[in-house]
Each structure stands twice: as C-alpha cells, then as structure tokens.
Amino acid sequence: MWKNYLRIVLLTGLVGSVCFISPGSFSLPIHPARPDSLNWPKTFGFGKPAAAQQIARLDTDVRPDGKGLPSGSGTARRGKTIYAAKCASCHGATGVEGPNDQLVIVQGLTDPATKAKNKVIGNYWPYATTVFDYIKRAMPFNQPGSLTNQEVYSLTAFLLHANGLIKETDIINAQTLPKVLMPNRDSFVPDDRLNTPAVR
C-alpha cells in the first residue's frame, strides 16, 4: 500500500526526499477478506446499479493530473469582472483585504502574525487544479455551485495571474491548468509520525 503511495508521490513530484523513508516502517494492511465475512454471500444484492448519468451529475471532482476538468476555457481578464461582481465582497477588491480568506499573495511581509496568515494560492497551494475544483463545488459562499465552467476557468485564471503564476493573456483550460507550476508543491511531505513514538 505505502509502496504504491510512495510511487504516486514520486510520480507526481510531490517530494523528492521521500525515498529516504523506509517503506517497511509503515504498517497499513489491506484486508480484502475479513474473517467475519468468510461465510457471507458474494454480494447481498442490496442497492442498485448506479446510472451513468447519476454518476456524471455528481462526479465533478478534478485531480492534479487534470482528470475531471470539463471543456471550456477562461482568461484572467474575463475573470476580473466576475471576481468583482461575485467574490470581492468576501475576499476583498484585490483578494487580500478580506473579510474572509485571503487569496492573493502579499510580498515583503515582516510581521510574523501577518506572514503566518499569508498562506495563499500563490505560495502555499500545491496544485492549480484544486483552485478550479474548489470554486466549482463550493463558491460563491452564498450561492455555491452557481458558476458555469467558463466562469470557473476565468476566475481560476484571474487568481493564478493575481498570484503571479501565469500571464494575463494565458488561456486556462483542461490542457493548460494541470501544467501550471505551483511554487510550494515540493514542500509537501507525507506523514512521518507513525513509525516512531517520537514527537514529530
């Protein structure tokens, strides 16, 4: 299991140093057949097959490799207008003022408390695809799920540009979004606590 996880981690470039962790130190076994289920029927036959349409209606999630991204595209310029109309009242005119979550990086901060809060898309989030996924499913807060794919692409582009990650004219779509490099991606490491009683 953890071998798989480590392989995935390495493939996605999450962290290079993970290869120093011994896979043998993790113990998360798979139990395909539990002793208490040995005399169970192969299936109980409860429930019904999920219709493809039902799955498609719910399955809007987006993976870092781009799986799940819909058709459509957007630009930062178009996103700017949508942001002003639907997002600025909570996140501030430029994405830093609030009152709710700061979205855009502020450069050159020195005060430790302010710096600690400055964990935003541009300097903390490891994958650009998460921006699309989250806006699509949960934003705007008072009208969640109301944005079209075009609007979500444009807002994603606007936020990536505001964070200095893409150019204003870049087109964001299913092909380009997974390729946006996020500066903090290599900082993320998997849980290293469980193979030792030491405090970590």
């Binding site: 987006v62 903390y124 998460t130």
Partner: peptide, 27 residues
C-alpha cells in the same frame, strides 16, 4: 491517487520546519 482537495492542501496540513509541510496527517 489522492485528489489534493482544498481541505487537504490549503487547510489540514501543517508546517514542520525546514520549509516542509506535512500532508495527509490523518492520525
């Protein structure tokens, strides 16, 4: 593979020094 949702990237992760951020720290 994991999906790297907003909750498990921007939120429920913790800085552990040397610029590293611990992710999927479930237990």
């Amino acid at each position: 593979q994991p999906y790297h949702t907003r909750q498990e990237t921007s939120k429920y992760t913790e800085a552990i020094g040397d610029g590293k951020v611990r992710q999927f720290s479930f237990v």
